[in-house]
Design a binder for these strands. Structure first.
Length: 420
RNA sequence: GCGAUCAUGGCGAAGUGGUUAACGCACCGGAUUGUGGUUCCGGCAUGCGUGGGUUCGAUCCCCACUGGUCGCCCCA
């Protein structure tokens, strides 16, 4: 039996890294004053159709959708924002006096795709959502949180790309301009783009196949079609970023794949060598119509999500080791029948006193037990043999210094606690 | 969804249509009645992803399936 395609087991040795990263991101979230939310792993399919958008690749071909025994159409969540917005509406969080509502989440997402490194069918995201504020300062806040989610681990080869998709009016004007621009040469575009021109002409812009088409360079930029208000908003966001000392690059062709985005859109990529085809580490943006679309009051929102798998890849690419201490405090080596009988109780006492302790359960010889202790990087080895037992004592060896002393058994816990 | 490539012990890795499937690392035991290292000696795949087929005989040839990896699409 194997784990299903595109899923993976996280085994001891890597779970410690995940735990470390989760803890660090949790602390970062707390400093930015975001609170944790946990939503279901599956939702009604309709949530994603309405929230993420029917024309997106995610909804059209990547969802894990099934019918449950009650004949409901259920989908394993492909992303987190729709669920958070749904929960925000369902629990009327907009009624709380503390606005905006600032939330973070962590958990598995599911997309049916061809797996390769950095792209799993089940993958883990950390994300944040700030609902209820249309202040450009909060756009900058979320972007800062996103970039610092990498910097706190020492990552440096990062590229922040931002764009504005504008408001409804900007988008419609731009959409029309794109159609007018490309329609005369529609036949020269790839089949995907011919369809895109009808459904979502914005996405023609980031097509790889038609990248070199002459009409591509002269295509109308969204930035030229922003309404006065949208343009000003974008300027303010950039102003806040400048003020924070966060460098970025404006890419008018940055188009996020989800329908709900408007105004600010951004992506963080890795510059590191040998990162492969997938360089996007995280992405996010503003989604001012989403909450209303899901039946709530008109509520602005912005958020982003990063992938744990890609964060770990970035750490590897930059050769960053997380400071994880895997050493064991204590390993008890027992010698003889009587000692074996006593060993478990002594180990148990140490553990309950907060000393991380282990012993042999494989019937190993004395020397082999010592080797095991060494391999586990035990800081101390306790030797319990007949001599020690006869005197109600135990030998304690500091494995780093090699020093060993014999102490009374009833002082062991006290002794160990002062040394660890 | 499309294209390419790969699959041998815990890990890495050689190999061949036919008696015992190299080697390295790791692990276990001994040399060394109670102290981590080194060295030496010994042990460790009735098995070569799964299922079929060809053959007197398949880990090796053929087909399908499963999974990994790389690229495309798209994204986190």
């Amino acid at each position: 039996m194997k784990a299903p395609r595109g899923t993976q087991d996280l085994l001891p040795g890597v779970t410690e890294k995940w735990k470390y990263i989760e803890n660090a991101l949790q602390e970062l979230s707390r400093n930015f004053h975001y609170k944790e939310i946990r939503t279901p792993i599956f939702e009604h399919t309709e949530l994603f159709q309405r929230g993420v958008g029917d024309t997106t690749d995610i909804v059209q071909k990547e969802m894990y959708t099934f019918t449950d025994k009650g004949n409901r159409s259920i989908t394993l969540r492909p992303e987190g924002t729709a669920s958070v917005a749904r929960s925000f509406v369902e629990h009327k969080l907009f009624g709380s006096p503390n606005q905006p509502t600032k939330l973070f989440y962590f958990g598995p997402m599911f997309r049916y795709e061809r797996p390769q490194q950095g792209r799993m069918r089940q993958f883990f995201q950390y994300g944040v959502e700030a609902l209820g504020s249309a202040d450009p300062a909060i756009d900058a806040e979320v972007i800062s949180l996103a970039i610092n989610a990498y910097r706190v681990f020492g990552l440096r080869s990062l590229k922040l790309v931002i764009n504005s998709l504008g408001d409804q009016e900007s988008r419609e004007n731009h959409r029309q301009a794109l159609i007018d621009h490309f329609l005369p040469v529609k036949d020269e575009l790839c089949s995907d783009c011919q369809a895109r021109l009808e459904q979502n002409p914005l996405r023609v812009l980031d097509c790889k196949k038609d990248r070199d088409h002459p009409k591509m360079k002269t295509a109308p930029s969204i930035l030229d079609y922003l309404t006065e208000e949208s343009a000003q908003y974008f300027e303010q966001v950039k102003g806040y970023l400048d003020e924070m000392g966060i460098s970025y690059q404006v890419d008018p062709n940055l188009v996020r794949g989800l329908d709900y985005y408007n105004h600010t859109a951004f992506e963080i990529m890795s510059d590191a060598e040998g990162f492969g085809a997938i360089t996007t580490l995280s992405g996010g943006g503003r989604y001012n119509g989403l909450v209303q679309e899901l039946g709530g009051p008109e509520t602005p929102g912005i958020g982003f999500a990063l992938s744990m798998e890609r964060l770990l890849m970035a750490l590897e690419a930059e050769g960053i080791e997380l400071p994880i201490d895997e050493r064991l405090d204590c390993y008890l080596v027992a010698l003889g029948e009587e000692a074996n009988r006593k060993a478990a109780a002594i180990v148990n006492q140490l553990r309950l006193a907060g000393v991380q302790t282990d012993q042999d359960y494989q019937g190993k010889k004395f020397k082999a037990q010592f080797k095991a202790a060494d391999r586990l990087q035990a800081k101390y080895v306790l030797v319990l043999g007949e001599d020690e037992l006869a005197n109600q004592q135990i030998a304690v060896k500091n494995m780093e210094s090699g020093q060993q002393e014999t102490i009374a058994l009833d002082q062991l816990i006290e002794y160990m606690k002062t040394r660890l």
